[in-house]
Nucleic acid binder design. Structure first.
Lengths: 205, 205
DNA sequence: ATATTATCCGGACCGTAGTCCGTTTAGACG
DNA sequence: CGTCTAAACGGACTACGGTCCGGATAATAT
């Protein structure tokens, strides 16, 4: 299994000096710990940058120096599970990983993504909201490219890039969470609907 | 042509007394005029509620009393064009209106929606953003139901409601605008891709 | 004309995300 | 160990959306 930790979840996370000053590292750990505590207690929406700074015992400027924005913090909190998800659909066992036909991989990708959103949805939503270019975040670009790749593997002729965009839109965390939480849609129905959708899109060629 | 102005763009816009106090009406006109001015000068994103109040010569509380929120203001500004759009796809001439086959109407709906977003996109985006339940706004529900109706008319068997949700996601203003403005996608490609998508979804039955 | 009342008005106030800049300090170098 | 500097720190500050409530006023009843 390759190490895929080089796939950054947010832009610019690899810039700057390689080494981190000890106080910076200490504060980063404090902040991440405090953030997880606060989310445990108040939910993702209940985490404010002021409270986080207070809980971690650092200044507010330090929080923004570390993570750039609230969305950046959320992405950092998601980065482990996100890297795991990426590893699974890129290098893991089929049908999610390579080895299965494109269509099966597409279906599995949607199912895995839906499961991911159901588990980490609040964080993902918080990471998206108020992120001006949430569509250009490296992770989002990677999902998009992956779908496009699978479409091409299935012989998609008509504008695979835009087809991938359309399919990506379907998996938007905000929409999925809204369907489940507000309208009480069963996750299984979402997966089944995704299967129908991608099957028709691919077969229609 | 029917009068479809009864289709509210935002929830609650029909509640309360039928008559409006004269000073309230005067201030509403002032506010709408000032809002259009500000958007002309600074763009939709440059319109802040404080500046709007100042420009209109009213207190800030009055702005929120009128429109409830920034999103509500944006919806009010969109209500004329939105009512027109609704009238066209519900009662207008085919292929957008009734009289054409479901698939053709679906294609026309997407094309019309894309054109709409290209014209009023900034406002639509501003109306969506930070609106907690943007998916349950009456107008959005109407679009969704319309797509679902057309899918059923084409004999869609598998969960037309969720299929309609997936197709709606594709027409999200934020995504469309992002594709056009950031990635420079030609609107014609968007329309063509929509045609491919709905054709495959419908025919795949 | 006067009194009554429901509605409306205004701007002070709050919580939040994000910025700024003077101060502190880790760590490298002599 | 002392010096130096780039990096990190912290919290006051701004801008914004949204709330609140005491005072003003338009419509209505008498």
């Amino acid at each position: 299994m390759w190490d895929v930790s080089f796939i950054p979840l947010r832009p610019g996370s690899l810039s700057g000096p390689v080494t981190e000053r000890s106080d910076a590292a200490r504060n980063r750990e404090r902040l991440l710990g405090a953030a997880r505590e606060l989310i445990e207690e108040c939910g993702a929406d209940g985490l404010t940058m002021d409270r986080l700074a207070e809980r971690a015992g650092v200044g507010k400027g330090t929080v923004f120096r570390r993570f750039g924005s609230r969305a950046g913090l959320m992405m950092t909190l998601l980065s482990d599970s996100e890297a795991d998800f990426q590893a699974r659909f890129m290098f893991g066992p089929p049908p999610l990983g390579p080895g299965a036909p494109g269509l099966e991989r597409l279906v599995a990708f949607g199912a895995a993504r839906i499961a991911y959103v159901l588990e980490y949805g609040e964080l993902a939503r918080a990471a998206d909201e108020s992120a001006y270019n949430r569509f250009d975040v490296p992770a989002a670009v990677l999902w998009h490219r992956h779908i496009e790749l699978l479409l091409r593997a299935e012989g998609m002729d008509a504008d695979p890039r835009l087809m991938a965009m359309a399919l990506s839109a379907t998996l938007d965390p905000e929409r999925l969470l809204h369907a489940v939480r507000v309208h009480g849609i069963e996750p299984g129905r979402l997966v089944e609907s995704w299967r129908e959708l991608v099957t028709r899109v691919v077969r229609g060629a």
